[in-house]
Amino acid sequence: MIRINDVTKKFPTVTALQNISLTVADGEFFGLLGPNGAGKSTLMNLLIGYLDPDGGEITVGDDKVTRDNLEARKNIGLVPQSLALYDDISAQENLEIFGSFYHIEKRTLRHRIEERLRAVELYDRRKDRVSTFSGGMKRRLNLIASLLHDPSLLLCDEPTVGVDPQSRNAIFDYLEMLNCAGKTIVYTTHYMEEAERLCTRIAIIDSGTIITEGTLDDLLAKLSYEESISIIKNSSTIGKLELFRQFGTVIDDDDRFELKPNGTFRLSSFFKSVEEQGVSTRFIEMSKPTLEALFLNLTGRSLRD
């Protein structure tokens, strides 16, 4: 579906993307995970043809994507990161306007508008001005405004920022339903939970480069350990940094130490030593490794920075 071949995009002061290559297959739910400023939105803008790359080439389906190729975007829906809505008119009117850009037959459009509004639970508020909506409601409207032409490729740029957990789940369900119905989805986020939950394949992007990509299992397998250990920072643990370092690399992360176990690590001997030093095991948590840990491992930084 999507082929990104050695794409570079430069802005006057920064290189937003550096020699990116990616492919997304038909029907995939592809996650683009990365921290702020990683280049996610820039990549989305290139995929829709809003920007032209400075180097490399992007094709969607059979069409080469450029600023001037209108054909390529007919079948793509972009959910912009910003709330791209007209505040002073109603939700319904917004959808009618954005739908009109695709020459959809009137009845079909009306039908789709109703269906999408119901799907994100905005049907009752359809006659209200968008300026009276809450942040989360605007997000949901922002999402469906990109779905009116029933695109086979959907590009979602952080579509759930500021949405409460319940509505977020509703959005997830909706997107998964669309994916099941055969739509290809590219989903950017800096929440690893979202990527883990939704995406069949994930690329981690940082500072304009793809640092790794694969299925969730592929990615987690890249971690050399099976357990992730975090030690809560408090008076009894802070002084024991040297002790923890004997078992692996320690990363100082806000309120806790993250321990990346080394090759010879044994859980039993770790707990034994720790108890001997008078650290309560209550302060030690073990979990399955996550993308968060992988990001930490690859970049030495936390995803949330």
Binding site: R67, P80, Q81, H149
Partner: peptide, 14 residues
């Protein structure tokens, strides 16, 4: 507001 991006994301030219 990003509306320009949304419009240009549809088959409409500058």
């Amino acid at each position: 507001s990003g509306v320009v991006l949304r419009i240009l994301a549809s088959p409409i030219s500058r």
